[in-house]
Amino acid sequence: MGVVLVYDGDCGFCRRSLGWGRRLGVRVEAVPASAVDPGALGLTREQLAEAVWYVDEAGVRHRGHAAIARALRTSRWLPVRLAGRVLGSRPVSPLASRAYAWVATHRGRFPSWLG
């Protein structure tokens, strides 16, 4: 398996976010967590249920906001790639990590128009 973004395919917010990413020019193979063998990625089902994962061609795994940052960096549009770099940068990463954790925990409570 090459570069892949593994997301919660049962989550409306997650599917909607992936659609936003596509409109932002993100070019990464996105696969629902239910369609992958977690062991092949060096992950567990529990890890896949907790967060989005980006696994690069070398098998390096990135979780949560770092996965989103990596995915944004695949965009065909420079401003989106730059946003991915900023999101994954040292100054922004601690805040982005906390924000991602909050969103992941509360994703089922978002209004229906988000999912």
Rank of each mutant, 00 (worst) to 15 (best):
W102G: 14
E29D: 12
G25T: 13
C11H: 06
G59I: 05
Y54M: 08
V28P: 04
W77T: 14
L43T: 01
C14G: 07
H106V: 08
V6D: 06
G64L: 02
A101V: 09
A71F: 00
W77F: 15
D56A: 06
Y100D: 04
W77H: 15
P91N: 01
G21R: 03
D37H: 05
V26H: 06
L18M: 08
R107W: 01
V80Q: 07
E50T: 10
W102L: 15
G88L: 04
V28A: 01
G108I: 09
L95H: 08
V6E: 00
E57Q: 11
W113H: 14
P32C: 07
H106F: 09
R85E: 12
R63D: 09
L95W: 08
V55E: 03
M1R: 13
V52W: 10
R61V: 03
G25M: 09
T74H: 03
V55T: 03
T74W: 02
P111W: 02
G64I: 04
I68L: 15
G12H: 07
V6N: 06
G9V: 03
R16F: 14
A58I: 08
R76H: 11
L24C: 09
A99T: 08
G2E: 14
L87I: 00
G108C: 06
G25Y: 12
S97I: 10
R90F: 11
F13A: 15
V52T: 12
G19L: 13
D56Y: 02
S93G: 14
R98I: 03
W102Q: 14
V3D: 14
A69C: 00
E29L: 13
L43V: 01
D56W: 02
V55A: 05
L41P: 04
G115R: 04
S112D: 15
R73Y: 10
E57F: 08
R81M: 01
G39W: 06
V36E: 05
W77R: 15
P38W: 02
L24D: 08
E29K: 14
L43R: 00
R61L: 00
V4T: 14
A67K: 01
Y54K: 10
Y54W: 07
G9Y: 02
V6R: 04
G39F: 08
E57Y: 10
G59E: 07
G21S: 06
V36M: 00
G108E: 05
R63G: 03
A83Q: 06
R70C: 02
G25C: 12
R15D: 10
S93H: 15
R85M: 13
G42L: 03
L18P: 05
G2I: 12
V36L: 04
G25A: 14
P111H: 02
D37L: 07
G115D: 01
V3W: 10
S17F: 14
A51M: 11
L95C: 07
L48A: 04
M1C: 11
V103L: 05
V80I: 09
P91Y: 00
P32S: 03
V103E: 08
L78N: 11
D37Q: 05
V55L: 04
C14N: 02
D10L: 11
V86S: 07
